[in-house]
Design a protein around this nucleic acid. Structure first.
Length: 420
RNA sequence: GGGUCGGUACCCAAGCGGCCAAAGGGAGCAGACUGUAAAUCUGCCGGCACAGCCUUCGAAGGUUCGAAUCCUUCCCGGCCCA
């Protein structure tokens, strides 16, 4: 199966320039492709994973990927998909963000020397030296205001009272210039991205045609959505980050485990790097016994290993076995230590255990004493798997390995207490 | 600058002198069911030393036995006029 057919079957093609021409070009030999990531935060999140994996899919199919960090575009702010002007980040924050994102962009792709070696680029490298007059003559002259005004991202903003600053208005020109630069200097012929990037990407294709007289390709993937229409990639605590310090491997894996049934097949298609036939088989299995959550587990394991490594996946799985396995008393000490790294934990004195309500509050499982009492009344807490009541005593319970107590609120909120 | 309407808990929104810790909806949390899913149903959803008390209805003063509700000033937002 060729790459385009595979991408299409996975629902990963939303739009593309001349599909036949692109297919022919891919068949003719290795192609260089780029996807850009702006440093709006100090980490990428799961929403960026589709773009990263796009590059990986291209690389696996024998093409050369160029992940791009938007050191320059990040300074300006992309108006696409935004109803209001962005706040500009200060330079120090931006530099920091770029450094973090660059580190993340160096994963998932093969950077070892060779024909298909990935190459990390930063658009600040060619944008910063550019003078305003150069930009106006070399880029601006090839673009008409009429075209720019016709773009969805611009038009929608003009229709509201929020308006659009000149700065954001020029964003797509910067991005177009990136594509032009990479085409000219690195032979990059294709830019991919989310469907919200279509206008910006095509602006680059146009610029390459007008300025260089060459034709380039554009392709977008659909944005990942959730079944209820809310933004994908947000969990209770906010975004699901790729940075292990911001979202632990355990939490990351949980995010995928908890994906609901109606979306799991779609996500598996979009995110899995396994052969399509294998994926279809997993989905079939899942449908015969959805309660086993085979699809969710497959997806969660693959992505956790991909993003955080095999070792982190094992640790996350071990923690999951303890936390969701029912009886934690059989867990080894090493496993409990691993659990402590994956879920919130704290150290309390033996004497402090006398006050159950205070323990629950200090563990963060209840927001106030009243909240703790109410949830106790509603049978919402467990300690070492045993349901607690208002008059329960923690001191009567056997500590795991003489020093741990595993608290749980509801099904998914855990806290490990270490008794000093 | 003038006029006018508004600012109520996480969000939306009712209340317009006592019956108000404040209706209703959403979000959230817990329980039942189940599968770490969805849907549904039930309960909770300011704080505390919890049949009681304390703090809250943009802010500060005032009227009143009593104010989210009335008055004054101020701050912020929408709309209209300039």
């Amino acid at each position: 199966m060729d790459l385009l057919t595979d991408l299409d079957a996975r629902g990963l093609i939303h739009d593309s320039t001349d599909r036949a021409a692109l297919g022919a070009r891919l068949a003719a030999g290795p192609l260089s492709v780029y996807v850009g990531f702006d440093p709006t935060a100090d980490s990428l999140h799961v929403g960026h994973l589709v773009g990263q994996l796009y590059l990986r899919r291209f690389q696996q199919a024998g093409n050369k990927p160029f992940p791009l960090a938007g050191g320059a575009t990040g300074m300006v702010g992309d108006p696409s998909g935004r109803s209001e002007e962005r706040n500009l980040l200060d330079i120090d924050t931006l530099r920091y963000n770029v450094s973090r994102i660059e580190a993340q962009l160096q994963r998932l792709l093969d950077f070892s020397p060779g024909k298909y070696q990935a190459k990390l680029v930063n658009n600040a490298d060619w944008t910063e030296p550019l003078t305003l007059l150069d930009f106006l003559r070399d880029v601006g002259k090839h673009v008409t205001i009429n075209q720019m005004l016709a773009k969805d991202s611009v038009r929608s903003r003009l229709e509201t009272d929020n308006g659009l600053s000149f700065t954001e208005f020029t964003y797509s020109l910067l991005q177009a210039n990136d594509f032009r630069h990479l085409y000219e200097h690195e032979g990059v012929e294709l830019q991919a991205g989310g469907s919200d990037q279509w206008g910006n990407i095509v602006a680059g294709v146009d610029l390459i045609r007008r300025h260089l007289g060459k034709s380039a390709h554009a392709m977008t993937h659909p944005l990942v959505t959730k079944s209820d229409g809310t933004k994908f990639g947000k969990s209770v605590g906010g975004a699901v980050w790729l940075d292990a310090d911001k979202t632990s491997p355990y939490q990351f894996r949980q995010f995928w485990i908890q994906v609901d049934d109606v979306m799991v097949a779609r996500y598996l298609h979009m995110f899995s790097l396994q052969p399509l036939d294998d994926t279809l088989q997993v989905i079939e299995q899942h449908e015969t016994a959805p309660e086993r959550r085979v699809a969710q587990r497959t997806l969660a394991d693959e992505l956790t290993a991909l993003v955080h490594g095999a070792e982190a996946l094992e640790a996350a799985r071990a923690a999951t076995d303890v936390l969701f396995g029912g009886d934690p008393s059989s867990a080894s000490e090493a496993t409990l230590a691993a659990v402590a790294r994956e879920v919130p934990s704290s150290v309390v004195s033996r004497a402090a255990l006398d006050d159950l309500v205070a323990v629950l509050v200090s563990a963060g499982l209840a927001s106030s004493n009243g909240d703790a009492r109410r949830t106790l009344q509603q049978k919402g807490f467990r300690a070492n798997g045993v349901q607690l009541a208002e008059d329960s005593q923690l001191t009567g319970l056997n500590l795991l390995h003489g020093r741990y107590l595993l608290l749980r609120k509801g099904k998914t909120n855990h806290h490990l207490l270490e008794i000093s």
